[in-house]
């Protein structure tokens, strides 16, 4: 009878970290084979990106709208209502939209990918692909991670635009500000120094969402319960990674003077 080996928790943490590094290595190695299926990647961009647009659009609009309504009384107290478009634009573009949209995408995309790959694993579809000589990492993982890397920044830009429209709507509930004046004030306060770091970090957010979703789904155990676990842990881990990446990004942009 084989002896059951007891592995201490700290070793399991290292084992998990090692597995994630190996999985990432397999992902990058497959990217540079330039053999991925474009049709599947476009399908994933549609499934992951386009189908998330309504949720992201509503969220972006409401965030801008609510921020404006919340800020207005305080700004009025200081006689600084005219700074609302600037304040909202900078906050939305630099921090709020990238992080909130990434967290929403983590909830929708990472869980979706985790559950899809997890159920493919349970129903032996991943193994079937592997034994037929196909490359499941290339077909299932590379396409989904790249789709997230492309779509999360685009969705964030869309949410920022709609957030500014929401803010414009919020400003016009109590007073009247013309469209030209509002967007003129908003855009004059935003520089490339605000846009670039924000855009770059959304690429990393997209990577984290796709990678964690794929890793959790691809490595899920057998049984229907594990599909739920894969989806759930994908959301939790991806959200955590987004917060960590954001913290690092803020430190970096401050250090670089943006």
């Amino acid at each position: 009878m084989a002896q059951e080996i007891y592995i201490p928790t700290y070793k399991k943490v290292f084992e998990e970290a090692g597995n994630q590094v190996l999985f990432m290595f397999r992902f990058f190695r497959n990217i540079f084979r330039f053999d991925f299926e474009w049709n599947e990647m476009i399908r994933q961009c549609y499934m992951i990106g386009y189908k998330s647009f309504p949720l992201v659009a509503i969220t972006g609009f409401i965030v801008g709208f609510v921020m404006t309504l919340q800020a207005e009384p305080t700004m009025k107290e200081f006689g600084a209502e005219s700074y609302i478009p600037r304040m909202v634009a900078v906050s939305l573009i630099r921090e709020i939209c990238p992080v909130i949209i990434a967290l929403i995408c983590a909830g929708k995309m990472a869980s979706g990918i985790g559950a899809e790959l997890g159920s493919m694993k349970v129903t032996e579809q991943v193994e079937a692909m592997e034994v037929s000589g196909g490359n499941p990492i290339q077909y299932l993982v590379v396409t989904r991670i790249l789709a997230c890397v492309f779509m999360v920044p685009l969705l964030t830009i869309a949410a920022e635009a709609l957030g500014l429209m929401g803010s414009y709507a919020g400003v016009n509930i109590t007073g009247h500000v013309s469209t030209t004046l509002f967007f003129n004030k908003a855009f004059t306060s935003v520089s490339f120094g605000d846009l670039i770091p924000s855009f770059v970090k959304t690429i990393f957010f997209g990577f984290a969402i796709g990678f964690v979703g794929c890793y959790k789904g691809y490595n899920s155990d057998r049984g229907t319960e594990s599909v739920g676990i894969a989806a759930n842990s994908a959301v939790v881990s991806a959200s955590l990674w987004i917060i960590v990446i954001d913290g690092i990004a803020v430190q970096l942009t401050n250090a670089l003077g943006y």
């Binding site: 032996e124 579809q125 193994e127 079937a128 692909m129 037929s132």
Partner: peptide, 12 residues
């Protein structure tokens, strides 16, 4: 080598 899985394992 061909492998036929118990469920058929079709890509759904």
């Amino acid at each position: 080598i061909g492998f036929l899985f118990q469920s058929g394992a079709l890509y759904d």
